[in-house]
Structure formats: structure tokens, C-alpha cells
């Protein structure tokens, strides 16, 4: 039995600050997908997203190693906020808008592995997930922002409300519309939408 999965992020951070590199490896492996996806949904380029993901974790390393890490709040929210800010800064420096025209993501995104599925099922899933990531980009910015902060950056609705300067009811409303809009867009795109297909 692997008991290390029970260790909290907070404990792993403390262990890492004390010099335990294995604790950091667990933190990275636990959060790399959310950090990477948060960035990828903004920059839409795998190489740039990987570079910025590395920058985000390096920034986190320096903050933790220098004793400036704030124990308040969740590590996941913190690291995803760093990632989100780096991705936005990237666009400011490049003087580009994150709301660029979408393309078919099939050549851009990596193949996801589901060993238990047939090749055909794998393709259906990957197509669906790639299309979903595209559809997230088409949401109004305020809705997309809340969706990414809550679903991928793991921030609470109150934290999102504080960060974006709106009431919690507004944040909740934006999230509700984001999810409803995504569902409508999925249905309108004739994308397979079977809960049994996607359950793990």
C-alpha cells in the first residue's frame, strides 16, 4: 500500500523546505497537470506551456527555499495562480491577445493514455477532450477566468470573488453560465456526451 499519497500538500511543503527533495517530486507530480493545463488553455502552445510551467515551479522553488512561502491558503491554488499570472504576462510581453482564432487541436495536444480502452474509444475521448479545451477558449473572458480559477487552479469561490473584485454571487453566476455554455456548445458540436464514457 502506498501511504505517501495520504500526505497533505502542506506537509510536503514543510518537508521540502527542510530539504526533502522527494517531497517536492510528489508535489510536482500531484499538481503538474493542473498547472500545465491552466497555462495551455491560455497560451495554446505546448512548448510555451511547458516553458512557463517550468518557470512557475522554479518561482515556487525560490519562494519556498527562501522562506517566503505563506502557509495560508492551498498550495494548489498558489502554484496555479503563479502559472496563470505567468501565462498572462507572456501575452502582455508578446503583445498578443489570448483570444486568438482557434484551430483543430489534434496536432497540438498530446495523446492521452487510457490503457483499458480500444483505439477507437481512445480517439473519441481525445477528440472530445481536445474539442472541450477549444470550447473553453470560446467562453467570454469573465466566465473562462472563473472556470479556470475554480476547476483547474482549485481556488474557492470566495477567493475568486476577492481576486476578481466581484461578489461571490457574481463569481458563482459566471461559473454557472460557463458550465451551462460549455454543455450547450458540446451538444451543438454533436460531440459524444455520455457520462458513462467519461467516468473513471
Amino acid at each position: 500500500m502506498n501511504t505517501t499519497t495520504q500526505v497533505s500538500d502542506s506537509a510536503l511543503v514543510s518537508l521540502y523546505i527542510a530539504g526533502n527533495e522527494n517531497a517536492f517530486e510528489q508535489l510536482v507530480n500531484r499538481h503538474k497537470n493542473k498547472v500545465y493545463t491552466t497555462i495551455l488553455l491560455i497560451v495554446k502552445d505546448t512548448y510555451t506551456a511547458e516553458d512557463l510551467m517550468q518557470d512557475a515551479f522554479i518561482k515556487a522553488i525560490h519562494t519556498m527555499k527562501s522562506g517566503r512561502y505563506n502557509e495560508e491558503g492551498k498550495f494548489s491554488s498558489w502554484i496555479c495562480r503563479i502559472a496563470h499570472n505567468l501565462a498572462i504576462d507572456f501575452f502582455r510581453k508578446e503583445k498578443r491577445s489570448p483570444m486568438i482564432t482557434l484551430e483543430d487541436g489534434s496536432n497540438v495536444f498530446n495523446t492521452m493514455a487510457f490503457a483499458e480502452d480500444s483505439a477507437e474509444q481512445l480517439q473519441v475521448k481525445e477528440d472530445t477532450h481536445a474539442r472541450l479545451r477549444e470550447l473553453i477558449q470560446t467562453l467570454p473572458q469573465s466566465q473562462r477566468e472563473v472556470l479556470m480559477m475554480r476547476h483547474y487552479a482549485d481556488m474557492s469561490f470566495q477567493e475568486i470573488a476577492d481576486a476578481t473584485g466581484v461578489s461571490i454571487n457574481t463569481a458563482l453566476g459566471r461559473m454557472r453560465y460557463a458550465l451551462i455554455n460549455l454543455r450547450k456548445k458540446m451538444l451543438n458540436s454533436n460531440i459524444a456526451y455520455d457520462k458513462n464514457l467519461y467516468s473513471e
Binding site: 527533495e21 517536492f24 517530486e25 510536482v28 507530480n29 503538474k32 497537470n33 493542473k34 500545465y36 493545463t37 495551455l40 506551456a49 511547458e50 510551467m53 517550468q54 515551479f57 522554479i58 522553488i61 495536444f109 498530446n110 492521452m112 475521448k125 472530445t128 477532450h129 472541450l132 479545451r133 472556470l147 476547476h151 483547474y152 458550465l179 460549455l182 454543455r183 458540446m186 456526451y193 457520462k195 467519461y198 467516468s199 473513471e200
Partner: peptide
């Protein structure tokens, strides 16, 4: 259902990028 879809739409970075972080 849509929440479940969003969960499964997460992408993984290449191992090389993760290893760079750990090495650093």
C-alpha cells in the same frame, strides 16, 4: 457530467519538462 469532462480534459506535460524542474 460537465465537471467530470473537465477533469478528464487535463493534459500532461512531457516528462522532460518535469525532470528539468526536479533537476533544478
Amino acid at each position: 457530467q460537465i465537471q467530470n469532462l473537465l477533469d478528464n480534459a487535463l493534459k500532461s506535460p512531457h516528462k522532460r519538462a518535469v525532470q528539468n524542474i526536479l533537476n533544478y
